[in-house]
Simulated assay, not measured.
Amino acid sequence: MEALQVRHRKEQRDLQSRITQKKKQASKKTRKGVNDECNKLEDELKEKHASEVAAVSGEAPKHDDGVPSEQLEDLALKTDGDEKAHTTNGTDDIEDSRAMHLASDEAIVPSQLRKPNRQKARLAKRAADVEAQVRQAAEEAKNMPDMKQQERTRMLDSMKERGLHEKEIRADGHCLYSAVADQLEQLQIPLGSAPDEKSVLKYKAVRGAAANYIEQHGDDFVPFLEEPLPDYLHKIRDTGEWGGQLELMALAKSYGTDINVLQDFGRVEKIESGRGGEGRVMWLGYYKHGFGLGEHYNSLRKAA
Rank of each mutant, 00 (worst) to 15 (best):
M1P: 11
V6P: 01
V6K: 11
H8D: 15
E11G: 01
R18D: 01
S27Q: 13
K29C: 02
R31K: 13
K32H: 12
D36Q: 14
L41H: 06
E44A: 14
K46R: 12
A50F: 02
S51L: 13
E52M: 14
V53W: 08
A54N: 01
A54W: 00
E59L: 01
E59R: 02
P61S: 08
D65Q: 09
P68E: 04
P68V: 03
P68M: 04
Q71D: 14
E73Y: 07
D74K: 13
D74R: 14
D74M: 12
L75N: 09
T79A: 13
T79K: 06
D82C: 06
D82F: 07
K84D: 11
A85M: 05
A85T: 02
S97M: 08
S97T: 02
R98W: 09
A99P: 00
A99H: 09
S104L: 00
D105L: 08
A107N: 09
A107R: 07
S111P: 09
N117A: 11
R118I: 06
A128M: 01
A132F: 01
R135K: 15
Q136G: 03
D146C: 08
R152T: 14
M159V: 00
M159D: 00
M159N: 02
K160I: 02
R162W: 03
G163H: 06
H174Q: 13
H174W: 05
V180S: 05
D182N: 10
Q183Y: 01
Q183A: 15
I189E: 10
I189N: 07
S193Y: 12
L201E: 14
K204H: 13
D220H: 12
F224D: 13
L229F: 08
P230K: 08
D231P: 00
Y232V: 03
H234W: 12
H234M: 09
D238L: 05
T239D: 12
M249T: 09
L251T: 10
G256V: 05
T257R: 05
I259N: 03
I259L: 02
V268R: 04
S273Q: 03
W283A: 00
Y286N: 06
F291C: 07
G292P: 15
H296W: 07
A303G: 06
A304T: 04
